[in-house]
Structure formats: structure tokens, C-alpha cells
Amino acid sequence: MVFDEADRIATIELEQDRDVVRARSRVADAMKECGSSELMQTRFVTAVSEVVRNALTHAGGGTLAIYAMPNKRQVGIECRDCGKGIEDIDAAMADGFTTRRGSMGRGLGGAKRLSKTFAIDSSPGKGTTVRMIGACSLR
């Protein structure tokens, strides 16, 4: 999945937890602009919240880019970090996988279920990039 044809409409540096709130709110605005239903907006903003928080807690920060897609009924995001990467992506995607005590490990798999398209690119030492597209309606 690439966003070559898409318009980048915002870039948010993820440095502190206040930035997670900013990221959510900017993506919510973008979904509203393309006429999203409340449910589709809630689902995608929740997915974005999960991956953005991952970048902050596991990699100490990153960058979120938000895209208006050529299909006007969709919003894309790319969340990139320079953390230590994920060794076993399949394991990390599974419900119940967690590297932290007290966490339920539903974040990454949940984000995939809540987005229309989901791609993750990560290798140890090279950071992690998650790209997702959210649809504004089910049709």
C-alpha cells in the first residue's frame, strides 16, 4: 500500500501523550470532511489511537501522516517510528500478545480489524511503519 496518489493533509509529530489526542482529533476531522458515519469514524479513530500510542510507548515517538485518498470516501494514515522494530509480526498481531504486564494485547490486531486496509512493515533495528485506510461508509 502506497499513498503516492493521495494528498497529505496533515503531519503530526508524536512526542508526548498530548500528541495522541491531537492525532485522534485530526483524523476525526478528516473523516467528518469526507462525510463519514459516526460508527465508521469511531472505528477508524480507535484504530489510529492504537497504532499511534504503540509508536509512543514502544519507540518513544514517531510521525503520523494523514492522507486524503483519491477515493474521496476514504482517509489514509501512515505512522512511522524509529524504534527497535518487531521481531515476529504475526505474533504481535495476535490477540493476547503483549510485551507489557497489565496490557491485554488487543491493540494491533484490533487496529487491523477496525480499518479497511492495514499494512505493517517492521524489522528489528529498523523501526515500524503502519499504514491504514479507513472507509467513511461500509458501502
Binding site: L39, T42, R43, T46, R106, G110, R113
Partner: peptide, 14 residues
Amino acid sequence: MRPAVAMTLVELGM
């Protein structure tokens, strides 16, 4: 809780 939040939580398995 908003209805959309309830539906999303169930999808998350929470």
C-alpha cells in the same frame, strides 16, 4: 457510552 463506542469495543473484543 456512545453506541458507536460500544460497537467498536465489541469488535476489539473488550
